[in-house]
Design a protein around this nucleic acid. Structure first.
Length: 422
RNA sequence: GUGGGCGUAGCUCAACGGCAGAGCACUGGACUGUGGCUCCAGGUGUUGUGGGUUCGAAACCCAUCGCCCACCCCA
């Protein structure tokens, strides 16, 4: 038998037991975000193409070659969201959320789409859990958001093997100066740069710092650092943030060469990386975007956010996964017993107890084998003899103990057993 | 978009020019109504697809599709 259909390249099914892990990750995120006042926002996965062009930046890789863009039946150019910040900002402006008490804090989760060649830790449809906080310019909120991210990752069970990198990439005031310095520095060595970087020199010289080609790496060794070119306001903001993180006991590594791939970032940028996922080492990343709300037609509103890659978190947590299993499996012999089992199962399930029933008129042996394979803790055996005496035989598959219980007491028996196990 | 690796049973893989196999898993039995352990039996295949070379191809060649990894970039 050969499947007639298969999933698209770079698009995966997430199956149990992995879905339990995913559910757990999202639950931990909500546990971390809730006390910080972040509320869930549901945003569309499809938007006007223009939204992403204007926010992410026309010369970024995402916009240049990775967007799922098409024309809908109404002739509009639409795009499957490649990231979550732009849609949230759009919603913030569209619904006048600035009129609510500041700060407004949101989290979202769901799929993003980027047309890239898939590889380890990178899919075309991938999931993110992200947050955005609007309306606070002070570095305190930067520290809050970063602390919340660290708290989330720790709750999820991955404090080790992760490192937090921090940078400031300046603002409208100081970044032009820095770009000029970079062009001055690389200008004389243009021929030594790789072809990609030669192109970046014109479009966005900051990206040269991110290049991994060896000869560029050597060249940029002595390149001027953004952190040496920050204006007074940006410097103060950055220094204060570092102080606050220090006070909170949050370890970080300054990385003055960290450049984010989206144009809307200002000042603070940060990234949480791991060395356990191959080449795709970013687990979560974010930063401040103080101009975006205004650019989208809202009032001048400072903002900051981050997004974490759910697949990558799940990949890091894989080994500790333990899926739940049924509390009870009812094996039956005969049609009458089968009816009795169904009644009992429906009743138990209403009480929230995971109950499975043996089907197919299979032998008791095969039903028990199936019960064992489902991981059920208890089995009830109901045959003709038991039915006549209105009782069920029970067996604990974990420790092998067994006995009998009257049918009318059976539900209570399992409920009590469940409490003992819990 | 570029480079490399790999496509054989549900899964992991052998066979590397001469009859397509093993382990695991699955189903049944040994044990008429008691799982796991053991033993026995059973089924699974267009060897990704199409062409070529050859007396003979899973193997060699070409093309194509798919998957994986890496570059680029990112979560």
């Amino acid at each position: 038998m050969k499947p007639r259909f298969h999933a698209l390249k770079g698009v995966e099914d997430i199956l149990p037991p992995d879905t339990y892990l995913w559910r757990d990750i999202e639950r931990k995120a909500m546990q971390a975000f809730g006390p910080c006042g972040f509320e869930e926002i549901k945003i569309p996965i499809i938007e006007h193409t223009e939204l992403f062009l204007r926010s992410i930046g026309e010369t970024t890789d995402i916009v240049e070659k990775e967007m799922y863009t098409f024309t809908d039946k109404g002739g509009r150019s639409v795009t499957l969201r490649p990231e979550g910040t732009a849609p949230v900002v759009r919603a913030y402006v569209e619904h006048n959320l600035a009129t609510r008490p500041s700060p407004q804090k949101f989290f979202y989760r769901g799929p993003m789409f980027r047309y890239e060649r898939p590889q380890k830790g990178r899919q075309r449809q991938f999931y993110q859990i992200g947050v955005e906080a609007f309306g606070v310019a002070e570095p305190g909120i930067d520290a809050e958001v970063i602390a919340m991210l660290i708290d989330f990752l720790e709750k999820a069970g991955l404090s080790s093997s992760l490192s937090l990198e921090l940078n400031s990439i300046g603002c409208d005031v100081c970044r032009p100066d820095y770009k000029a310095k970079l062009r001055e520095y690389f200008g004389g060595r243009l021929s030594e740069l790789c072809p990609d970087c030669a192109r970046r020199f014109e479009q966005n010289p900051l990206r040269i710092l991110d290049c991994k080609v060896e000869r560029c790496a050597a060249l940029k060794q002595d390149a001027p650092l953004i952190t040496d070119s920050l204006c007074e306001a940006c410097r103060t903001h950055f220094d204060e943030l570092k102080n606050l993180l220090g006070n909170l006991g949050i370890d970080y590594k300054l990385n003055p060469r960290m450049v984010r791939g989206l144009d809307y970032y200002t000042r603070t940028t940060f990234e949480v990386t791991t060395n356990l996922l191959g080449a795709q080492n970013a687990v979560a990343a974010g930063g401040r975007y103080d101009k975006l709300v205004e650019e989208f037609g809202g009032p001048p509103t400072p903002a900051i956010g981050f997004a974490a890659g759910t697949e990558r978190l799940a990949a890091l947590l894989q080994s500790t996964l333990k899926a739940p299993s049924p509390s009870l499996f009812i094996a039956t012999l005969g049609a009458e017993a089968s009816r009795e089992a169904l009644k009992m199962a429906v009743s138990l399930r209403r009480k929230g107890i995971w109950t499975e029933i043996g089907y197919g008129g299979a032998s008791l042996k095969s039903q028990l084998r199936k019960a064992d394979r489902t991981g059920a803790v208890y089995v009830f055996i109901i045959g003709e003899d038991e039915l006549r005496e209105r009782k069920a035989k029970w067996k604990n598959l974990k420790d092998g103990s067994s006995g009998e219980v009257r049918l009318e007491d059976a539900e209570g028996f399992i409920q009590n057993a469940g409490q003992r196990l819990a």
